[in-house]
Design a protein around this nucleic acid. Structure first.
Lengths: 157, 157
DNA sequence: CCTTAGTCCGACCTTATTGATCGGAGACCA
DNA sequence: TGGTCTCCGATCAATAAGGTCGGACTAAGG
């Protein structure tokens, strides 16, 4: 239960990879294309492309077309939260259907609903969790920043 | 995103109702049948029945057949956690596909996967949240527990 | 300047999961 | 013992996810 979609998974992997490339696993500011990511993680190429398009449309990454093109982070890794990434792909966080009811529409159970309030509390806790964790925080295994020792480069790629 | 299924929703409503009936909104120890719950909350009768069957099979409620039959809580409301309820309906908690991989099977991305560890941290936090909240806590606007998000700190570095 | 290879982009199809439904079996009470 | 009320298991339709195809654009290289 509460499983996030494959597309969201792919988005997280791709962003982690792009961030790592940009922070300097080889060359700082490097542009990385769809094919490279797809092969690295065994993700269906065309599906990953679709995911990256969505992320681009939501201004999390920037696309550069043509030969030597690819994607670059739109802003610093510590300014991109997990919540933003997931919401770009799967839409707004909503444990229940009645989480974001507009005026006028409401579920059939609304009148006597006895679980709405507690569930919204749970939802808030999860939202807080995802909002407080950034892409930077996910870069645990890979060396942060720095062009440094050749040992570090060996590990990174 | 992260939306729980309708069936899980129904399960929570039904259990809350059964618990309320049992704790004495009219008669303590009262047996409540499927039809009563379905009408109270405008839930499709047959679908709710299926949900209750599942809960019964998972030993969260006890079924009594025949006229004047119905369902009763299998144990005290403060001994039933939200996690147990949701898992009965939707299966074990798993943010990602690789959450409960058995030996031998693993996702294609496993080798170079860079997000598995941080996501498992997030999952643990959510599990903790759901395990610490009982059916009792959902009764009548009672105060709720809130966990502070420790996932981000735990993963960083 | 023009060709060409490489890239992103948007619409389409297939498959799996959820939501909902139907008829039957068992149990209790009169 | 008959009838009625209840739970139960198997089956069908709707929705969303996963995956695929061809076209449009860009920038380099001759």
């Amino acid at each position: 239960m509460l499983k996030i979609s494959k597309k969201a998974d792919y988005a997280l992997m791709a962003l982690q990879h792009i961030a790592a490339a940009q922070l300097g696993d080889v060359i700082p500011g490097r542009v990385v294309n769809t094919k490279e990511i797809a092969e690295e993680y065994n993700i269906p190429l065309e599906l990953l492309a679709k995911v990256l398009q969505t992320l681009s449309r939501n201004a999390l990454i920037e696309s550069h077309n043509g030969p030597k093109g690819g994607y670059v982070l739109a802003r610093r890794a510590d300014k991109i939260t997990i919540a933003q990434i997931l919401e770009s792909i799967e839409g707004p966080l909503g444990i229940t259907d009645c989480s974001h009811e507009k005026d006028g529409e409401f579920c059939m159970q609304r009148d006597n609903c006895n679980i709405r309030t507690p569930l919204l509390k749970v939802q808030d806790s999860i939202a807080q969790l995802l909002n407080n964790m950034t892409l930077q925080d996910m870069m645990g295994g890979t060396p942060l920043i720095t062009i440094q020792s050749s040992a570090a480069q060996g590990v990174a790629r």
